[in-house]
């Protein structure tokens, strides 16, 4: 039982980082209808940036904030290239994000090398109900909770947030009332970059990242996002937690190498199940 709880807690913590990546996918997809293949890159960039900032003598806190800001900037850059040009079809945008993801490897290796990078986060263990929990886990959960709270405030209670939702609900009508849908798409990419960066900042102390860690991060995040049909952040959060705990249990009780297989199989299963409920013709109109 203790072992189970231990696995579950670590699963919840990793699940939270999946949730942040997943929300990045969702925020971008909702507004721009582009699945951003470079989503995992933001996490890698931010994680590596923190370690650089720390080694240059920047204290914890500012280092993390700066790294998230850097990831947001990366998100904006990806957005400008992927959707900034008028009339870029979504499929082309998708391939562009893929190209940017691959191209970013070159930049990351140039700056940080091709070896895994890590830094120490919150050290120490907390005793909770018979199990010991790393403080970093608690930090991850707390930051994720606060982030989701802020996101829901933003989307449900601010004018700008509602304009973003409007772009996703009916882009034509959004343009009619004067909302610049492309600009909102860029805003979404920036927000998605920040969310990915936040995930990277939180996850790097738990597991070192290297330039190509983005695939694994993106796969997990995308699998979680698929729970909500790529549209609902709340469902993505639930999906991410389920996925995180399931992976931790599989890795703990069976084999660590099966861990990533969980996300893949869950993702494929969910996509197929969702596809079964919609006809291709209806998809096209959507």
């Amino acid at each position: 039982m203790t072992l189970f709880l231990q696995y579950a807690v670590s699963g919840i913590a990793t699940g939270c980082t999946f949730a942040l990546v997943a929300t990045g996918f969702v925020v971008i997809y909702r507004v721009s209808r582009v699945v951003n293949f470079a989503q995992g890159v933001f996490a890698v960039v931010a994680g590596m940036a923190v370690s650089s900032f720390l080694s240059r003598g920047l204290p914890h806190g500012p280092a993390e904030v700066l790294a998230v800001a850097l990831a947001a900037l990366a998100g904006l850059v990806v957005g400008v290239i992927a959707i900034g040009r008028r009339g870029t079809p979504p499929l082309a945008s998708l391939i562009i994000t893929l190209g940017l993801g691959i191209g970013s490897y070159a930049v990351i290796i140039l700056i940080w090398g091709d070896q895994p990078v890590s830094f120490t986060g919150l050290a120490g263990l907390a005793r909770m109900g018979g199990i010991s929990v790393q403080y970093q886990f608690l930090l991850v959960v707390a930051v994720t909770a606060v982030t989701f709270g802020l996101l829901s405030l933003f989307f449900d209670h601010t004018y700008l947030g509602k304009a973003l939702t409007a772009c996703s609900s009916n882009p034509y009508a959004a343009r009619l009332v004067g909302i610049d849908v492309r600009r909102m798409g860029l805003l979404a990419f920036t927000l998605g970059g920040a969310l990915g960066g936040l995930a990277g900042v939180l996850i790097t102390p738990l597991q070192p990242v290297s330039f190509d860690s983005d695939v694994g991060i993106a796969i997990n995040g995308f699998a979680a996002a698929i729970f909500g049909g790529l549209l609902r952040p709340g469902t993505a959060l639930v999906g991410a937690l389920v996925l995180g705990v399931a992976e931790a249990l599989v890795a703990g009780y069976y084999r660590a190498s099966f861990e990533s297989g969980v996300a893949l199989v869950v993702m494929l299963g969910l996509m197929v199940w969702q596809a079964g409920r919609r006809s291709p013709a209806a998809e096209e109109g959507a």
């Binding site: 391939i95 562009i96 691959i102």
Partner: peptide, 18 residues
Amino acid sequence: PAILSYAVYGLVLVLIML
């Protein structure tokens, strides 16, 4: 070599698509 090929892959994809 790795840096060069990643950079070219990325650039080619983006430029062709744009």
